[in-house]
Design a protein around this nucleic acid. Structure first.
Lengths: 338, 338
DNA sequence: TCCATTTTTGTAATCGTTATCATTTCACAT
DNA sequence: ATGTGAAATGATAACGATTACAAAAATGGA
């Protein structure tokens, strides 16, 4: 491996001069500077980032953790994180956990051992180092920002939307467009997203004075397939629904097909509303009405929070809630406005 | 920051003993070992990975580069890469380029500067360090494996399917199910995937003795939206098509909607076949006939190649071609078998 | 008890940078 | 020429781990 010492030798200068040509070229005289640059080119030298980091104790590498990259919802968030990160001089790497604690801990170890500077967590799992610190009432052991999910009482900055309110909005929309027997395909209840959205559904119904009848609720795991299966169960359970709120778009896409394959139509027989505003939802048959989360803003806010944390600033631990939005397409009946 | 020296001091031993308790506990006497472990727990010590890497010159971090994580096709590949990588003791991070050279080079720099051990490249862009080395007839400057795309004459291991043959298979399938005027929505011609699939289309037509008429071909950029737009152009160009081969599933999903919104049906009026076998394609209306790539095998092969490279082995530079498969669903007419 | 082995331990060099500080070189005025 | 201050350079100590190698301690047999 070619090191700074090899360059120094070949250029007939000291290692300090080489280092300076690299980081403050104006501080070294042009003749030496060009000799050094020549040597660097000749030997194809690239400074060893490991050694430099050891010396500088600064980290330009951040990690964004997602449960699964296959989920297109995360991509918008990640993209905006990356854009901001880039501007702020960081490098972003993405880690996928597949909801496995060991994988997550593996990535957390990178931060614990200073191979990376900080973590943005998009999933519903917490690194065990964080859980442990909570249990011991200690501070969180590294720069951490939470996005999308909510963790009660975790002392770190977080950003999300008000999932419960957004879910309630979706249900109200179904009601306002004429649905009277509104069911739901809920997300996994192990996770705050799933719980909040189900609570929103419940709250909206009770605000509307509707009783949640048995056979109106099924649970999925946010996948297309689970949405399909849950819809089949709803259809079979005699709930006699005319509208269904799905806790995300992927399950709604599965549900859509279940409805059609049962010989029913959307929105004619059963209206459907999803959550997340996936690109694929807009091109489903019929195009899916949904709740849009401000993915760009979500990512940007999270990234700026992490930057503030890394700059040593103290960041407010109260969750930042961003605005959501109803996107009306053809899977719900049209509102009669006037 | 708490270092190994702090632990040594608190436990009343030397740093060597601490290091040994960490990596070869059986080599240190139980009493000291437990004193050290106690000190580690007390001070919440985590060894500095940077320092260790500098000393050990080994890399357990690999980078997988994708053009955009939003593309669900890549997720299957990445997942299998991660599974194998994990078993082999590597840590995988994902970098997204959004087809921008500067981003790609940024990740390549991490390998060049030894912040990571190697690269698996899934996109159509090459790091400039690699292009430069090719131009100078030098060897590629770091462990690199290519998956999915093909680069003529690049001396490094690669794995893919035979895109041209697969595209030809798709076109033949349309023919065999009765289509006689077969158009295509091609991928970007800047990229080998797009080119190979278009060549396959051309070759299949000429093998079938069909003349490619004007108005049968439009180009998209692999996105849903571009597929929609391209299909609208095809419909307007008077090519009078009864079947269309789309160079990927996302464009096919866009095309599907364009056809429907024009009052036509699939496969009745126009049959459609895609490429990649996305999950969303299986749940489209109608479910999409497509070509499946063996994503799992693709990822596994790439990862094993990179491991071999990192182990210092010499790996064959001839591209490894894996088998593809036709997945018949309802967007093409049913074959009359007998 | 004492010597020869075998285990355990500690000291110090090393990895490739950066940064401090002392030293040398330079430009310029006298 | 010479003195001065500024600019450029070099030697070297960090950064925090790992690991030869040497030294010390423990073990065991006589």
């Amino acid at each position: 491996m070619v090191t700074i010492r090899d360059i120094a030798e070949r250029a007939g200068v000291s290692v300090a001069t080489v280092s300076r040509t690299l980081h403050a070229p104006e501080a070294v005289r042009p003749d030496k500077r060009s000799r050094v640059q020549q040597a660097i080119a000749d030997l194809n030298y690239a400074p060893n980032a490991i050694a430099r980091q050891l010396r500088k104790r600064r980290h330009e590498t951040l990690i964004v953790i997602v449960p699964e990259i296959a989920n297109p919802f995360f991509s918008g968030i990640i993209q905006s994180i990356e854009n901001i990160a880039h501007d702020l001089g960081y490098r972003v790497l993405i880690g996928e956990t597949q909801d496995r604690q060991d994988r997550l801990d593996h990535y957390a170890d990178m931060v614990l051992s200073r191979a990376a500077g900080g973590l943005i967590l998009l999933g519903s799992l917490l690194p065990s180092a964080v859980t442990a610190s909570m249990a011991d009432q200690r501070a969180i052991p590294f720069p951490l920002v939470l996005a999308c999910e909510r963790f009660e009482g975790l002392p770190c900055p977080s950003v999300a939307i008000d999932n419960q309110a957004a879910a309630a909005l979706a249900v109200r929309h179904l009601w306002e467009t004429g649905c009277r027997r509104i069911g739901t395909i809920a997300g996994p209840q192990s996770n705050s997203l799933g719980r909040d959205r189900l609570n929103g559904y419940r709250k909206a119904l009770s605000d509307l004075g509707v009783n949640l009848e048995c056979g109106w609720m099924e649970e999925g795991d946010f996948s297309i397939e689970s949405g399909h299966a849950a819809m089949m169960r709803l259809l079979g359970s005699g709930g006699n629904l005319d509208g269904v709120f799905c806790a995300n778009d992927e399950m709604a896409i599965g549900a859509l097909q279940a409805i059609r394959s049962s010989g029913l139509t959307t929105p004619g027989d059963i209206a459907l509303i999803g959550f997340d505003d996936l690109r694929f939802g807009a091109f489903a048959t019929p195009p899916l009405t949904t709740i849009r989360q401000p993915t760009g803003e979500l990512g940007e806010t999270a990234m700026r929070m992490l930057d503030a944390l890394l700059q040593g600033g103290v960041v407010d631990h109260r969750p930042v809630l961003l605005a959501h939005e109803l996107v009306e397409r053809q899977s719900t009946k049209q509102r009669v406005d006037n």
